[in-house]
Amino acid sequence: MKATTHTEIYRRYGGELRSRPAVERILGWAGLRMAFRRKLPALILFTPSAITALVGCVMVHLRFMLAERTAEAEGRAATLAARGIQELLGDTAENIHRFIQTEQFFALLTLAWYGSHLIAEDRRLSANLLYFARPITPLRYILGKWLTALALGGLTLMVPALMICWQAAFSSPDWIFLKESSWVIWRTIGFCALWIVVMSSLVLAISSAFQRKGLALMCTFALVFLVQGISLVIVQVTGNPNYGLLSLIENFQAISEWLFHKPNIGTSILRQAQGLGHQPAWNIEGSFWTLGLITFLSWVVLWRNVKRMEVIA
């Protein structure tokens, strides 16, 4: 006969259940923990981000250090050399702008990789039966998943960008960066927040439409890069640069240039093709409206799909 121990006795729960548990926070944190559970993808996806941030910090530090040296330099040759390197390194705003342009790609990879499975996996495994057997509304479920996506986007884009700002603040003599260029910090936060909100909404919407993570991942990249290519072709064929508004990448580039008053480092393929150089191809409001529309549509898709996961009419 099987031995029965004290551990096999059913015990009543003596506590009280909260009427409105912080479902979003619990789901968001659980998603983030799960993301970092697998070491290899985390290493591959976050290392480039970290390296880029490190390089950005070093460049900003060097720039301020050389500025100090230039002021102190006595010889003409030394002054000229320091100025030359300084120009090569660019100013802080330019460095941050350059960093954001590069970092967007890594952030997109990370967000797409982790975000594409957030809802698709629940659908494939019918884990929604576990979640929606709990007092969870579809909106709170979406917010929970969105928090995970926001955190991942924040870790790969906003945190490294703010690290560079932090470095600039501490490396600048007499806090000159904070006194004269604090707008760079606010605009960095603004741009990163915009990018993260739009891209995380899009990635989650795509994830909610598929039951396979791989398909959701492919669809995300197709939407970003394929649409970029298609918009380029349409602009070439029609000669109307406004079709560039179809591309997410072009819109983000236009907004970052507008925010930082800086020409884009590589200048987009689209504008190179159009011979537009560093000039914005369209009114910046158009980019905001486009991104707003993409976010709105993403949430409509997300809501519709998640609602169907909870209640099948």
Binding site: R18, P21, M34
Partner: peptide, 22 residues
């Protein structure tokens, strides 16, 4: 078969307990 992969049983059960209000 709806158990979420990557989690242990104790993590999953505790998570669902918290989602219920514990």
């Amino acid at each position: 078969d709806c158990l979420i992969p990557g989690m242990s049983a104790v993590e999953l059960v505790a998570l669902l307990g918290r989602l219920t209000g514990m």
